[in-house]
């Protein structure tokens, strides 16, 4: 059982990496558009982060979080989100594909439908987010050689949770049909909350942020791992992200059983 699962996972990862590299080649081909998207997203993120710089310059800290801590929190969120839209850019229109019966073409292939749908597109702007993440980590002064593994694991956890959250939000379309607006909103609200320190929110809201909108798994646990590395923090960050990812895959597969074809005749190159 475990061996079958492992083989399936390895095969899907190999297939996903092939799909992603083809998508990346395609996006690099349009060089002008690629760099414009990257630079604009970079500027966009920096301007957004400037709000924190203004607040910290005036008040020193927000709930004990100083500018360098915020750089780590924002850096993990930006890098995780950037990786998500670069590697799994198809996530943003997954609910539309489900609703319009657009998964038909993927169902005919002998590979995972989910992997194909997610890696069917890449968003070059994600590289801008990744660059901002890397820049903020460097500026924060919190990243040393010995904390690099914690940082990489943190970013991977953020990436995994963003993808999983997108799958959960967009899979609602299997049951409720046209959910594009609500699915996208749930995903974007998770992104929004993950950019603010957990110290701001009370216990009730924090419960929501570890379940319905998993901002806690996206950034709070990974940043805790980076700022205060421990086995406990590692277990919480990894365990939380992997459990949420497993739930997302399970939910998508349950939904796929209810999927109705779009009865369309299309040709894929």
């Amino acid at each position: 059982m475990a061996q079958t699962l492992l083989r399936r996972l390895r095969s899907n990862l190999g297939f996903a990496s092939e799909l992603v590299s083809r998508q990346l080649e395609a996006s690099f081909a349009l060089r002008g558009a690629f760099w414009l998207s990257v630079v604009l997203m970079f500027v966009n993120d920096l301007i957004f982060f400037s709000t924190w710089w203004i607040l910290m310059a005036r008040f020193g800290h927000v709930g004990g979080w100083r500018l360098d801590d915020m750089m780590c929190l924002y850096g993990i969120t930006a890098a995780g989100y950037g990786l998500c839209v670069v590697v799994a850019g198809g996530i943003s229109d997954l609910s539309r594909r489900i609703d319009e019966g657009d998964l038909d073409a993927f169902l005919t292939q002998p590979k995972s439908v989910l992997v194909q749908a997610l890696a069917s597109r890449t968003q070059p702007a994600g590289w801008g987010d990744i660059s901002v993440g890397v820049g903020l980590f460097a500026l924060s002064g919190k990243v040393q050689l010995e904390t690099v593994p914690a940082l990489l694991i943190g970013v991977l956890c953020a990436f995994t949770t963003f993808v999983a959250c997108g799958i959960v939000a967009h899979s609602l379309a299997f049951w409720f049909g046209r959910t594009q607006t609500i699915s996208r909103a749930l995903w974007e609200f998770t992104l929004m909350f993950s950019m603010y320190p957990p110290a701001l929110f009370g216990s009730g809201l924090r419960l929501v942020l570890f379940t319905l909108l998993p901002a806690g798994l996206v950034s709070y646990l990974p940043v805790e791992l980076l700022l205060h590395p421990s086995w406990g923090a590692l277990g919480a960050a990894l365990g939380g992200s992997l459990a949420y990812a497993a739930f997302a895959v399970w939910l998508f597969e349950q939904g796929l059983r209810r999927y109705a074809s779009g009865n369309r005749f299309t040709v894929r190159g």
Binding site: T181, I182, A185, F189, F193, L200, F201
Partner: peptide, 21 residues
């Protein structure tokens, strides 16, 4: 409804920010 929900959340988040500060 999406705009109203976003309006609600952004005010909620920033009310937490200002209260904390």
């Amino acid at each position: 409804i999406g705009r109203i929900a976003f309006y609600c959340l952004i005010l909620l988040v920033f009310s937490c920010v200002w209260r904390t500060i």
